[in-house]
């Protein structure tokens, strides 16, 4: 077929291995993906393989799993638990608030919709120092909002246990980019709700409450959970914001790894950092796997 030959041409353009005498049942068309395979192989899979390799050896190059065992003890354990806590709370708060906001956003259209969509996009991608410092400026001891709250509502933010640098402060900052992320992820699910379902419910005699209970919630629940899982993964892996907000008081896994890497490396602990890094990958893998499973359930509908 003429077209098939022509389609082989791009592989030559991209530096693929070109045509060869097909001795075996070898599908030439996969060669077009060679550049991608090579790139990902070297810059993604090879580093991960190296981490795996380093994490199962001690510094005497003996095969061992002790580094993984260590992750369940002491500071490492604290770090993982801290990250889980932060990710979990952030997921709950942002998931629920995000879903509610999403509900209203989905009803907008035109200019308002474009603005809210792009706003969500920008906000979801803020992080690190810009975000942290913005919050310090707003909610810090000298912050504008802190002062405003004091003057107008007579609410001393710092009177209680609130502190921008403790757990709840960081949670607040995380919600700032998690909620827009939720809006972005959850919007498609809401857009797939058909108005015919509401009308059918009405014509069959159902009340609004019954519609919620029997149709809306069951339909939305899987999408909601899968969106929450993505929020969890995102909060768990966040580094820049944690680094900017933390003054060392909150144990978080990404920061721990950062410390192990940043010249605080004690010879014995070099590989421990790799084990930790792998630990984070494994957690992330589980969460994404659960997400994909839920997605399949949703698609079946």
């Amino acid at each position: 077929m003429v077209i098939a030959d022509e389609l082989a041409a791009p592989t030559r353009l991209m530096g693929g291995s070109g045509s060869s005498r097909p001795k075996f049942k070898f599908d030439k068309s996969i060669l077009g993906l060679l550049p991608l395979f090579l790139f990902l192989g070297y810059f993604l899979l090879y580093p991960i393989a190296s981490i795996i390799s380093a994490s199962i050896h001690d510094n005497k190059h003996h095969l061992t799993f002790v580094l993984y065992k260590n992750l369940f003890t002491g500071n490492y354990r604290e770090a993982f638990i801290g990250s889980f806590k932060l990710a979990f709370y952030s997921m709950i708060v942002s998931g629920i608030l995000g879903a509610l906001i999403c509900w209203s956003v989905v009803k907008t259209s035109g200019v308002v919709r474009t603005i809210t969509s792009s706003a969500a996009g920008v906000l979801a991608n803020t992080g690190g120092v810009p975000l942290a410092f913005m919050f310090i400026a707003a909610f810090g001891q000298e912050g504008l909002i802190t002062k405003l709250l004091l003057k107008v509502f007579h609410w001393d933010l710092y009177g209680g246990s609130f502190d921008l640098y403790n757990f709840w402060g960081i949670l607040l900052v995380y919600c700032f980019f998690q909620i827009p992320l939720m809006v972005i992820i959850f919007t498609p699910a809401l857009e797939n709700l058909r108005v015919e379902w509401i009308e059918a419910n009405e014509s069959l005699g159902g009340s609004k409450l019954q519609y919620f209970r029997h149709v809306l919630i069951p339909v939305l629940l899987p999408s909601f959970f899968s969106a929450c899982l993505l929020l969890f993964a995102s909060a768990f892996s966040a580094f820049a914001t944690a680094a900017a907000m933390s003054n060392g008081s909150i144990p978080l896994a990404p920061l721990f790894i950062g410390n192990l890497v940043n010249g605080n490396v004690i010879p014995d602990q070099a590989n421990q950092g790799d084990a930790m890094a792998m630990g984070m990958i494994i957690v992330s893998l589980f969460v994404i796997a659960a997400y994909l499973l839920l997605l399949r359930v949703t698609r079946k509908r």
Partner: peptide, 16 residues
Amino acid sequence: ANKRNIGMVFQAYSLF
């Protein structure tokens, strides 16, 4: 509407 005891069939997409 939900008290009129009317049966309605829509063009599409109405099944839950």
